[in-house]
Design a protein around this nucleic acid. Sequence first.
DNA 1: CTGATGACTATAG
DNA 2: CCTATAGCCATCA
Length: 113
Amino acid sequence: MSDRYRRIYATVRAIPYGRVASYGQIAALAGLPRQARLVGYALHRLEDGATVPWHRVLNAQGRIAFPPHSTPYQRQQALLQAEGIAVIGGKVDLRQYRWQPSLDELLWGPGEA
DNA sequence: CTGATGACTATAG
DNA sequence: CCTATAGCCATCA
């Protein structure tokens, strides 16, 4: 597995319960600006046992990236709602739920593992 | 090797 | 809301 993937997974794991982030935001925080697609690809290749909160990652409009009514779409929606996040029409209000890490969090938070 | 694809995004009509 | 374009890059046929 590449170092890029490790950075991406570490960043996604840093998203707190009940908050969400966009693919582009994860890429930027992971030190990979403009690599949103890579984030999507990395999550796509996750294995079942992975301890990565992939469901907390949405596109730039706060929408679930899967086709509406598909199985993964419904699973992600359920996981988000289970964390108290309102999902209306496959969309989440980023103004309310977007993860905005503090400097402290970025420097000393979840660590790099 | 070459070209297409995708859990993306920003900008422009 | 829609389409089109351009950037991005690991993966796959």
